[in-house]
Write a protein that binds this DNA or RNA. Structure first.
Lengths: 356, 356
DNA sequence: TTGTAGGCGTTATCAA
DNA sequence: TTGATAACGCCTACAA
C-alpha cells in the first residue's frame, strides 16, 4: 500500500467511482474509457457500448479536477459582481449561468462587496481556481489585478471595453436613453431637476451618468443639481433631505433617482411628505421592475436589458474559448426610456409657491 | 522533452507560476514551499521568509485542482437554486457566498430553472466538480439524485430537513406568521379570502401554504379559496380573473398573493380595475421588499429572513466540513407578519354590492 | 528541519 | 483500434 493513501478518507475509494473501476467493469483499459467518454480518439462500436454501459451502471462522473489538471482547462467561468445585494445583477448572473451551462461551463460567483480589498481576494481565488474566463458585471475597482488574470491567459471581458465604441457597449446604450429622458422632461416644461444618488453605484459609472445628465439638461435650458444621499441611510433622513430640497430656492420640479434600490426610499419620502406625483413633482429612475410599473402612478424609468448584455458578453467569451463556432450576433436592445405616469407637466409657478 | 508536453499550450509554463518555480526562486525544495504556504509541517524562519518572498515576487497562486486532487477536498460549496430569476434567492446566495468565502470556500451556482431534467444535469455537474457540500435553497424535485451526492460523501443540507422540527426550520418559521396573518384578517372582520398562486413557487411548498391558510381560515370562520393563475401570464389576463373573482358570489374581501413576483401584477390589475385597497379589498403577499413598503398603501407582508436561514445552513455545513469549531448559534428571526396599510376592515356588505 | 519520491484521476502519446 | 505509460501540480510519508 502506498504510504500516502493511508491517512486519506478511508472510504474514498468506494465513495467515488473512478475511471479504473469503469475500465474494469467494461473489460477495457482506462485509455479506452477516456477516449469514449471524452469523445476524443477512436473507439470501436463494441468498446463504446461496453464503456457507456459500464459508466451508466456505476453512475460514473469523471473528476473535473483530474481532467482540468491534465487538460489545462478548468471549464469554469468566473463572474465578478460588485454587489450581490443589488437585484439588477440577478438577470446578469442568470444569463451567464444559462449560456455557460449549455456549453459545459460551470460558473463561479465572486461578490466584491464593492470593496477593493475583497475584489483583490476574489480575483486571487479565481486565479487559484484557474478559471478559463472572467466576466465582469461592472467596472473593476483595480484594473491591475484583472490584468494579472489576463496575462495568465484568462479570457477577460468587462462591460466597458466589451464592444467598445459600438452601440452595444453599456454606456452607449444608456446614454441615448438618458438623453431622451432629458428631452422628455424639457418638452413637458421642466426647468429644474434634482438628481439623487447614493454611493452604491459604481464610482466610475455614476459620475458619467451625472455628467451626461447635467450637460444634456443645460443644453435644453434645464438647471440640474446632484444631491448625494451617501450618509442618509434612514427613511427619515431621506425625507428630510427631500423636504429641504423641495422647499429650497432650487425647488426642482423633477426628482431623478440614480438607482432602482434608491427609488422606493425616495417614493416613501415623497408620499410621507404628501408630494403629489407628478402633480407637484415628477419622478423617474434608472432601473425597471414589475413593482415600478405597478406603482401608482407608474414610474417612468430608464432601463437597459442587462441580461442581453450578459448574454452577449458570455457568447463572446465562449467564442474566444473556442466553445462556439462564431459569436452569436449581438442582438441587444438598446437601453430605453419608458415614459409612464410619474412624469408629467410641472405645476404652474404659483402652485409651487403654495407647497412651501 | 517528454512527449506529452509537446502539444500543450506552448506558453503554459510561463503563463502560470507553479510550485517548482517558487522553490527554485526561494532556493528550497518544493516540499518546503508546500509546507510553508499550506501552513502544515515544520519550516525554519529563514526558509519561511525565503518562500514567502519568492511566492510574493512571482505572484504565485497554488492550483486549486492539483491541491484538490491530492487532498480530496475541493473547497467548493455548490448552491442549488430553483430559479435564479426570483430575487428572493439573492439574499440567500449572498449569505452563502459571504460566509463560505470567509472560510476559504468557493461557491458554485446551479440554477435548476424549475426543471427536473436541468436539476439532474446540474447535480451531476456538481458531482463531477466534487463539491464538498451542497446547499439547497429549496426542496429538490428529485431526492434520489441528491441522495447520490450524499452517498458520495458530500455534505448536504436542504431547508426542509435542516433543523427539522425546531423553530428554525423554514416551514415552521413561516407557519406561525401565516397563522398570525389569518388571525389579523379575522380580527378585522374578513370572511372571504382569495389566495392567488402561480406555478413559479416550488410545487412542494405551495400546497403546504395553501393547506395551512385554508385550515387556519376555516377555524376562524373565514371562507378561503385558492385561485391558480398558472395559465394567465399577461397583465390583462390577471385583471380579467380578478374582475371575475370580485364580481362572483365569493366576492372576497381580501386578496392574498402567493409570491413577491406575483404581487405587482395583482396590484396593477386592482389599480386598473379601480379596486380601492384596503377600502374595497385588502391585500397581502408572501415576500417583502422596499418597493412593497413604498407602495401606497404600503403592503402587508409575510416575510422570512432567507439570508438568516442561508447563513444558518452554511454555518452548519461549514461545521460538518470541519471548517469551524462549533456551528454558530442559529439566531434566525422567525418569519413575521407585518401588518401595514393594505389590510384594513372590509367594506360593509351594502358597499360591496355597489362595486358590482 | 529538509529533500526525495510517489501518487491523486485523468488525458495524450506512442508502440503494438 | 487498443493498452501501457508518462505526465499535469500539488501534498505528505519517510528517510536523511
Amino acid at each position: 500500500m502506498p504510504p500516502s493513501t493511508r491517512h486519506r478518507r478511508p472510504l474514498a475509494s468506494t465513495l467515488q467511482v473512478d475511471i479504473k473501476q469503469v475500465a474494469h467493469e467494461a473489460g477495457v483499459s482506462t485509455a479506452t474509457v477516456s477516449r469514449v467518454l471524452s469523445g476524443r480518439g477512436p473507439a470501436s462500436d463494441d468498446a463504446r457500448r461496453q464503456v457507456l454501459d459500464a459508466a451508466n451502471r456505476l453512475d460514473y462522473q469523471p473528476s473535473a479536477f483530474a481532467r482540468s489538471l491534465r487538460t489545462d482547462r478548468s471549464m469554469i467561468i468566473g463572474v465578478l459582481v460588485p454587489n450581490l445585494a443589488n437585484p439588477v445583477f440577478l438577470p446578469f448572473l442568470r444569463a451567464v449561468e444559462h449560456l455557460a451551462q449549455r456549453h459545459g461551463y460551470a460558473v463561479l460567483v465572486a461578490d466584491t462587496q464593492r470593496s477593493a480589498e475583497v475584489e483583490r481576494l476574489q480575483l486571487n481565488r479565481l486565479r487559484a481556481q484557474r478559471v478559463d474566463a472572467l466576466i465582469m458585471a461592472d467596472t473593476p475597482q483595480d484594473r491591475a489585478h484583472v490584468r494579472r488574470l489576463a496575462d495568465a491567459g484568462v479570457v477577460v471581458v468587462d462591460p466597458d471595453t466589451f464592444a467598445e465604441g459600438t452601440r452595444w457597449s453599456v454606456s452607449t446604450l444608456e446614454a441615448d436613453a438618458t438623453r431622451e429622458a432629458c428631452r422628455h422632461l424639457a418638452g413637458l416644461g421642466h426647468r429644474r431637476v434634482a438628481y439623487l444618488t447614493r454611493g452604491a453605484m459604481s464610482r466610475r459609472r455614476s459620475p458619467d451618468r451625472w455628467r451626461l445628465i447635467n450637460a444634456t439638461c443645460r443644453s435644453l435650458g434645464i438647471e440640474a443639481v446632484q444631491v448625494r444621499l451617501d450618509r442618509h441611510r434612514t427613511a427619515g433622513a431621506v425625507a428630510a433631505v427631500l423636504e429641504d430640497l423641495l422647499g429650497s430656492d432650487l425647488s426642482p420640479t423633477t426628482v431623478w433617482s440614480n438607482s432602482h434600490l434608491l427609488a422606493p426610499e425616495i417614493l416613501r419620502a415623497m408620499a410621507d411628505g404628501a408630494v403629489d406625483i407628478p402633480g407637484h413633482c415628477s419622478f423617474l429612475t434608472f432601473g425597471d421592475s414589475p413593482w415600478a410599473a405597478a406603482y401608482r402612478p407608474s414610474i417612468s424609468v430608464i432601463t437597459s436589458d442587462l441580461a442581453a448584455v450578459a448574454e452577449a458578453m458570455t457568447a463572446s467569451v465562449l467564442h474566444r474559448l473556442g466553445a462556439t463556432e462564431a459569436p452569436e450576433p449581438p442582438d441587444i436592445e438598446p437601453a430605453v426610456f419608458l415614459a409612464r405616469q410619474s412624469t408629467g407637466p410641472p405645476p404652474p409657478e404659483p402652485a409651487r409657491e403654495s407647497i412651501r
